[in-house]
């Protein structure tokens, strides 16, 4: 039985656990008011967390559709990029999967001597982290671009007018 198939059997359980870890990256007060075990994902942020982890987990096992993976990542990172996180905290959720897998499998796999499988799988998670980093940067770039665009839009007609003033002075200077 491959490590992937072991993981595949426990997909639902592990992705839920992963989501739980992601939730723990929020301040304790926030976690508290988001609710207990049962209803803690009943809000737009929580639902994105659980959705993203549920999608990412099988995608990681299949590891054949980069687009699908980045779409799932994007969903979650988009939210974390505008919340009160440092860049590293924002994408730390990827490494939490590593933590989860080590907590769950390190000891038994060491005993069985199959630790290599775990390490091999972890390379995927590292790749995931790289993708997350790209997506995070893209989101932040988008935000900064939106800042500039917003100022431009707010003064759209002034900019237009400013150009006209330049034209006029050129004409005036000729006569």
């Amino acid at each position: 039985m491959t490590f992937e198939s072991i993981l595949a059997e426990r997909t639902a359980e592990l992705s839920e656990k992963w989501a739980g870890l992601v939730l723990q990256t929020y301040p304790r007060e926030t976690q508290k008011i988001w609710g207990r075990q049962k209803d803690r994902f009943d809000n737009p942020v929580g639902v994105t967390i659980i959705e993203a982890t549920r999608e990412l987990f099988p995608s990681l096992l299949e590891w054949d559709d980069a687009e699908k993976i980045s779409k799932s990542l994007d969903k979650l990172i988009r939210i974390r990029a505008v919340q009160d996180f440092s860049p590293s905290q924002a994408i730390s959720f990827v490494f939490l999967l590593k933590k989860l897998l080590r907590d769950e499998f390190f000891k038994p796999m060491k005993k069985e001597g199959t630790l290599e499988d775990l390490l091999r799988f972890e390379a995927k998670i590292d790749n995931l982290a790289m993708m997350a980093f790209d997506i995070y940067s893209k989101s932040r770039e988008l935000i900064y671009r939106m800042r500039v665009d917003e100022v431009k839009r707010a003064q759209h007609n002034l900019l237009k007018k400013a150009k006209m003033i330049v034209d006029v002075t050129v004409e005036e200077s000729t006569d």
Binding site: D39, F41, D42, N43, P44, G46, V47, I50, E51
Partner: peptide, 14 residues
Amino acid sequence: TAASLHETKDGHVV
């Protein structure tokens, strides 16, 4: 009202 999670065929919807 209360926010709640719903499973639909296109995934989860709040």
